[in-house]
Every structure is written in C-alpha cells, then in structure tokens.
Design a protein around this nucleic acid. Sequence first.
DNA 1: ACTACTATTAGTACCAAGTGTTAGTATCGG
DNA 2: CCGATACTAACACTTGGTACTAATAGTAGT
Lengths: 189, 189
Amino acid sequence: MKKIKKVRQSELIKKIEDNPFVTDDELAKFFDVSVQTIRLDRMELSIPELRERIKSVAEQTFEDEVRSLPIDEVIGEIIDVELDDYAISIFDVQKEHVFQRNSIARGHHLFAQANSLAVALIDDDLALTAKAAIEFCKPVRSGQRVVSKARAVKTDGRRTTVEVTSSVGKEVVFKGEFDMYRSSEKGGE
Amino acid sequence: MKKIKKVRQSELIKKIEDNPFVTDDELAKFFDVSVQTIRLDRMELSIPELRERIKSVAEQTFEDEVRSLPIDEVIGEIIDVELDDYAISIFDVQKEHVFQRNSIARGHHLFAQANSLAVALIDDDLALTAKAAIEFCKPVRSGQRVVSKARAVKTDGRRTTVEVTSSVGKEVVFKGEFDMYRSSEKGGE
DNA sequence: ACTACTATTAGTACCAAGTGTTAGTATCGG
DNA sequence: CCGATACTAACACTTGGTACTAATAGTAGT
C-alpha cells in the first residue's frame, strides 16, 4: 500500500534536502504518485520548484565567492598607519566569518586581521611573521565591528616586535604579540 | 556605432563571468543587439545557457557542502582524524594565498589551517581557541602542499592543549601550540 | 557591377520544468 | 450514504532557452 500523505511529505522534505536537484517527475516515480500530487505537496510544504532551489544554492556560492575574494587582499580596512610605529584597522564580522553553530567568529579571521595589520605596519617590501603569541579573550559575534590597534614596541636589526590589541567597543577580544621579520634593516630616516 | 563582434564577445565573456545569472535577453538589451546574436555569440564562445551556468555553480556548492558537512568549515582538507587524539589535513597553497610580490604564503592561511584542524580535533560542539603560540619556521610558496598534523597533548577539564606541526615535504614550516576551550568536560570513555 | 561572405535579425517549432486552474474520481470516517 | 480529504487528469500559459531556416545589410574581391 502507498504511504500515507504525512509520511510521504516528511520523506519528501528529506529527499529534497538530500538532493535539491531532483525533479517533480523523479519524485513522482519514486513515491509512485502523480506529478500533481508532488506539486501539491510542495505547495503545502512551500518548497520552491527545482530551478528556484538550484538558483538559491548558486546564489549562496556566488555571494560567498565574491565576499571571500578580498579576504586575501587586506583583512579589515586600515584606517590609519604610521610606518614602524602604529596602525589601526577595522573589521566587520559577518555571517561568513562565524561558525554556523554558535555564530562565534572563527579565530583565524581575528588572527588574519591582526597579522595583516602587523605586516602592513612594517616599512619594508618583505615583512613576514616569524612568531606570534596570541590570546582570544572574548568571543566575537556576527555583526560586531572589531577595531585592531598595532604598535611596534621593539626593533632589533631585522626583527620587530608588534603588539596588537583588538576590541569590540571597549572590550578587548584579542591580544597578540607578533615577532616580525623584514628583508632589510630598518634604515635611518 | 555598435561595437564590433570581437569586442562584444570579449565583453560578453566578462559580463557573464561577472554575473552568471544574466539572461540572453538582458545581454541583448545591454549590447543593443538581438537575442539571436547573443545566442550565436554564446555558441561561438561555447558558453552554456543560463540554467546550465547556474546549475554548475550550484553543483559546486553542493559538492563542497557535502564534503565539509561533518567536519564543518575547515581550511584545508582533513584526511585523517581521531577525535581528541590526532588529526591530519592537507592544504595546497595557491596563487591567492601568497603575497604577490614574493609569492610567499600569507601567515594567516597557515594559521587558519592549523587552527581549524585544532578545532576539528576537539570532540565537542563548541570548541574555541583561547590562546596560541605559533612560529613560522620557513616561508611557504605557491604550489606547495602543506601537511598539518595536530595532536592533543593535554586535557584538563575544559582545556585541551593541541600541538600542531605543518610541513612541506620533510621540512617543518609552521609550529603551533593551541590552547583550546570546549563547552563541556571531556567524558570518561 | 556582380559575387561571395560575414554579421545580424526574424520567425518558427520545440523542450524542460514548471504554475494556475478546473474538473473528475477514490477512499475513508462517521 | 454523505461529505471531506486525497489524488489524478487535462489544459493553457510561462521562462529561458535549442535548433533550424530564411531574409537582409554591408563589406571585400575580382
């Protein structure tokens, strides 16, 4: 005997979630009902048609791709910099930067903001991070704006120590000490 | 005067790459030619139709999602994991991960691989990085494959210390000690 | 000037995967 | 047995195309 409506509909949901690329026709054959019944089910469950499903999946990807491009360029926006002295950047935490489960920002984004700020601070063509000691003081959530402040505290030949503090409002969320390496010794200016 | 064919076609490619969701009709209006001309152009350039474009974008996402479903949001590809013990991931450094000037991988990518591996290693819904001490031992370049190995070395209540070592071939390029926090204490097994 | 050729436009038939609507049939509970 | 719910069927219409044919405009070659 055929499955009862409720059962079919709940299985339909799973089926479509599992493979959003399935057509009404295929579903009809699978459940051994008419295409119309599948359509009615979709109506009742307000599941959009195949093309809309595919489109929305594609739109997600596309937006993600577009948004993750500039991540490599500069993480956060540098709003002030005095080379070999201090630098400030801001970074707006958005949905794509957080864990889906708990909407807490993934550590590497905060690290990336601080690290790239430390790199930007060094007045040299080739600045690399040699070591770092970091601390994630408080979780950061989607929608929050992180202000990162970097300060060069010590320079010794090709090594520069940079201290970075990131805050949301007045609360410190991240602290790091970056040991930076440069290709040439700091020239006297 | 209208643009010559060659020009239109090269712009058409950009236009579609830029926004794969554009219809022939919209393109026809944009270039002020007939829909048929756009279709002929697509044929010549072997650009698939709207739905196929969208579908292929969606398929990518879907495949990606499937791959990262259980081990959510990891940088690099996890190839082995034993929860609360060890984990291994690989990460292929590509052009977009390096500084343009010197083609050396940006630190935060190596950090991200190590950090997300440390997160994946923790057998808990909510794993966060509290502190980390890291060292970039050797520059990594575009095209190289970084193998990252994480090992849980100490667990004390909600704190777990994870040691991560990343190598290219036999050479260690990154070392890190991550102090991870979990939402619930590790259950005795 | 005539021909050849390219680029463009127009129009037709067709397809997939639907929507929206109306109508008819089955089946089950009370 | 009646009526509600569930299901099926049929038809017109929509989008965004493919595939094909035919007509036209402009340009170059000889």
